[in-house]
Design a protein around this nucleic acid. Structure first.
Lengths: 352, 352
DNA sequence: CTGAAAGCGCTTACAG
DNA sequence: CTGAAAGCGCTTACAG
């Protein structure tokens, strides 16, 4: 015998049980109609669907999650939405997940690893089935927590065959080696770099390493004074360019490798103000291929990355794993395309 | 008597019950320690916290949600992350929610109202406690579903005292009236507009209405042939500008009002190519104040909106409501700031 | 201040 | 193919 009736407030919403009585079947059957329809005869299936529709029943995800240990929730942690690169990636993921009946939790770390960890923990508590992380610069605890709970994950935007994580992205080091080699092949020997901060950012650190490696192979090296690091803004690009071109007693660099297009565009704006022109007086390169980069004067030499594809591939990998179609994520490379345009050319001394 | 033991797979995770036995208290007490700590004596509180820490217990959100009817999840539906305007808004919300212990579901409609509805329904099924929607152009069913379940919501980016929804944003119509009046006050009489699509976009429709209203007040009206509508790209801005300036037998407009900065910047690039200069030969305005707009040559006259603030305000409103501190959302206005720069000036004929 | 136990809304092994 | 019922992991009214 049960005891006294407790006054417990339900959600007030229509529940599966009511659909079951309306359709004159058990709750098990209603559940099957929506989760394993092939196990239910067509006649009953239709009757149940009709009842559900008539009652406007929407399943309660918490009850479902509790009973099945599946939440149909995915998570993504990115540095910031202020950068369109990550925004496009999230857009790509979101579309794929939504199509597959998954909802996406979004967290932004603002380049603070502890904040990223906090957000990941919040997602784990809410039962995300899998998670996508931008880059590898995360606290060891984060990866440990994922492994302890057996939550599949992929690292995006980075790619390296030596990584201990499944990666979907590109090799930032290789990309910047290619870019530097492009400039070396044009005869440049005096290089400078204007980069965004490398702290807590394995992708940017790899880019810089790529520049250094390509230079070293040509017997060159980047002096500390020729490496300027600061915020990824037009302003910082502009200031840095002016600084490099007006230093007392220092020869001007003929090739400037920028960490991204935004910085490079800022530098080109400063060049206009100083009356210097690329590629006549110097060459400069970016990375990202922003919409404006191919329309700016001069058209900017840069590399294009299909960020939406990175998001799409990452989402599909994670879906395949949680669906049991695949044991573990496999790395995939999305190779950036070098776009040689007007801002890079032969080094000034070699012109006719 | 209970029947035979069923083999049911749990999540395998540490659960509240284990914390309770470890700390030698009831499950009710463990729950109280984390949800209503003031009801538990300090000694027990510490003992329980210690046990939870030692066992590395993370509460199961589904169990919690089912028992309490609270999910601590918020939702946001935006058109697209490809537009930094919305990305900034989401970034602002995300930070506030995360701080308050809420996780954010993100959905993108890609300007398709039915897709927005679908995503909202997915969020409702997962029990979001409140929702932020960009704009008012959503199917009536969406608002009906929110009202039926008594889910608080705010509309962002739009703002109108006549709206039937709580709004956090600005009055797009008023903003474009101000911009148009700025150009009228400079003596312009021949206007053209280059705008992004108005379909399913109440904000853009309101902007255009604002231009028309200001012109009407000055006894002018916008001819169909002087209104160009197309994608919000640099390319469309450039093409449209060239078209307006090279039409046979038509006088050139002296003032061009663009729907946003991106279109205006494209137009200015085309102007450079045609050898036309603002504000000498024509005036042009944008909207958004992108980072590049104040650094472009000529510096673009535009309006700046604090999108992050819109996100922050929206998030705080929704939090206050679900916390019971406020009965319903109240509209708040975030007024755009007119930035008069070099791209607008007196109409050509009036120059000395 | 604390505990025993019902209940939140589903899914799923078991039995038929 | 279908149903009766246990169970998922929490919270909370009730009793003390």
């Amino acid at each position: 015998m049960t005891g006294t009736k407790r006054a417990r407030e339900g959600s007030g919403r229509v529940k599966l049980e009511e659909v079951a009585s309306a359709a004159n079947v058990s709750t098990a059957t209603v559940s099957r109609v929506f989760n394993e329809p092939e196990k239910v005869s067509e006649a009953i299936r239709e009757r149940v669907k009709e009842a559900a529709r008539a009652l406007n029943w929407i399943p309660n995800a918490a009850g479902r999650a509790l009973a099945s240990s599946r939440t149909h929730i995915m998570g993504a942690i990115i540095p910031t939405l202020d950068n369109e690169i990550f925004a496009h990636q999230v857009g790509g993921m979101q579309a794929v997940f939504s199509n597959a009946g998954y909802t996406l939790f979004l967290g932004c770390s603002n380049y603070d690893p502890l904040e990223g960890l906090r957000q990941a923990e919040a997602m784990l508590a809410r039962g995300v089935e899998a998670i996508a992380l931008v880059g590898e610069s995360h606290p060891a605890e984060l990866f440990a927590a994922l492994k302890a709970r057996n939550i599949p994950y992929v690292v995006t935007y980075s790619y390296s065959t030596r990584s201990e994580h499944p990666c979907i992205g590109f090799d930032n080091r290789a990309a910047f080696m290619r870019m530097t080699n492009h400039l070396l092949s044009l005869g440049h020997r005096r290089f400078a770099c204007i980069f965004q901060p490398v702290a807590n950012n394995d992708r940017v650190a790899a880019r810089l390493a790529g520049v250094r490696e390509a230079l070293a192979a040509a017997g060159l090296q980047l002096a500390d004074e020729d490496l300027l690091i600061g915020p990824s803004t037009l302003e910082f690009g502009a200031e840095s360019f002016s600084h490099l071109m007006t230093r007392d007693g220092k020869a001007r660099p003929t090739a400037i490798v920028c960490g991204n297009d935004n910085i490079a565009l800022g530098a080109l704006m400063a060049a206009n103000a100083l009356g210097l022109n690329a590629p006549k007086d110097f060459s400069i390169t970016g990375f990202d291929d922003l919409a404006i980069s191919s329309r700016f004067t001069p058209r900017l030499t840069t590399m294009k990355v299909d960020n939406q594809a990175i998001g799409t591939l990452a989402a599909n990998q994670l879906l395949a794993i949680v669906a049991g179609q695949q044991a573990s994520p496999k790395s995939e490379e999305v190779v950036p395309v070098l776009q040689v345009r007007d801002s890079s050319g032969p080094r000034p001394e070699e012109r006719g």
